[in-house]
Design a protein around this nucleic acid. Structure first.
Lengths: 235, 235
DNA sequence: AAATTTTACTTGTAAATACAAGTTTAATTA
DNA sequence: TAATTAAACTTGTATTTACAAGTAAAATTT
């Protein structure tokens, strides 16, 4: 079992406490010094953990006052995080596999420039539909370079996060990434899956995600139905 | 003159160097220890500065290797930052004032919940159109609580950042915030200003920005034309 | 010559310490 | 009592030190 750094341990602990409601909206977290003595670490370490929470938008820090819990709202939070937790959090996000993972050559005119290594190895391709309380919200197309991922295509993806499988079975973690966002009219295919009218506005995200494995990136093209829900983020 | 913390000074220096092209895409930044001796500070301080750069997506850190410059792409970067630099950066973003700043009561059914203090004080309202190389890109509507901002409505906004004025004249800085994003069809008014067809997909951002002044928030409703340009962000 | 090991670098994590600066509460003074 | 001042908190900034872990190049061995 790999041991996480102490500041990440504390981050996960506090995160869980906030999401479980042990600390509620508006509450003050224990002060940094209190956290130090509670968890037996020093202030720089505690502050690293709090910085992660603040980055997630789960707390707001106020000099002279403390760290105020700012529970993420009901909306879908795909923008802020991808990796630490999955997009939506705890609410029931169901996943339908539309196209099972399979190895294909990269499409011509890919949305991001590819390295030679990536081009040569081909990619693992899959399409998924994700529903929130029965409403289709995301249609996402994923591309992963076929490098060092044995038996990947045969794994079960239903209701399991793509990122969770990458982490648990291959030790691959998302470190960060970049994304482009536009509003586009829904194509026939997208409109059918998202159950909206053809041509209706859809949010389109193109993401390139970096991992801890050198040269391994995960690419996603995500179509979002924002009629009922909106994408939420902090900065 | 207020003096910035040393880590922020270094951040701004390095940022400038990267954007000016002194360090180029793919270059390795001087190592943390080198930066320490160059600028006469210690590693934690240097690391704070690098963390800010990494947050902007301007560098990528690799353990054992170094910090690699990753110049922000040509797209518009409104998602990542608002405050340190304005949305677009250096390229010529022209601003047209459509509705000059004026004091009005808050609209009923505001996009974010308001505090009692905010409700009582009314708000400063303005509408702007922002063009990139002649193409209208953003139409933004701004609301600021009318607290401690004397002579605000008479100031010149043309081609000057709203945030720059807030910082330079009132010492107000944006600390962070939250936003909702959806794709919506363009209304008549929006389509006219953005020069697109009515009903064409438009990106709609609703933002609440926190400042260093207690209780003072800046609210924006931004409509983006993403036909030619897309919104870019890192995470 | 090729493979391996070592070495010297890089960033990552963590502690202990100190003082500055903002906020709130308590004590003091008018 | 009301206003002011002081004290006791809070987070922000900064130094110093130490070792762990990942990477790349040099030295060694096979």
């Amino acid at each position: 079992m790999i041991t996480l750094p102490r500041y990440k341990e504390l981050y996960h602990t506090l995160r869980k406490h906030i999401l479980e409601g042990i600390y509620r909206e508006g509450d003050l977290l224990p002060s940094e010094n209190e956290l130090c003595s509670i968890y037996g670490m020093t202030r720089p370490t505690v502050r690293q953990a709090l910085a992660l929470l603040a980055g997630d938008g789960l707390i707001r820090k106020h000099q002279g006052k403390g760290s105020i819990v700012h529970r993420m709202p009901r909306e879908i939070g795909i923008l802020s995080v991808a990796g630490t937790t999955s997009a939506v959090g705890d609410r029931g996000l169901k996943t339908d596999i539309i196209v099972k993972p399979k190895v294909i050559p990269w499409p011509g005119e890919f949305m991001f420039p590819l390295s030679e290594t990536e081009k040569e190895s081909g990619c693992i391709y899959m399409e998924r539909l994700r529903l929130l309380e029965g409403t289709p919200i995301f249609y996402d197309i994923n591309y992963i370079a076929n490098i060092n991922l044995p038996r990947f295509t045969s794994r079960q993806f239903k209701d399991r996060s793509l990122f969770k499988i990458l982490r648990d079975h291959y030790g691959v973690e998302i470190k960060g990434g970049e994304q482009r966002i536009r509003a586009i009219p829904a194509s026939g295919k997208i409109s059918r899956f998202l159950k909206i009218k053809p041509g209706a506005p859809v949010l389109h995200l193109e993401r390139k995600m970096e991992t801890n494995v050198n040269g391994l990136y995960v690419y996603s093209s995500i179509y979002c139905n924002t009629e009922k829900y909106s994408i939420f983020g902090t900065f």
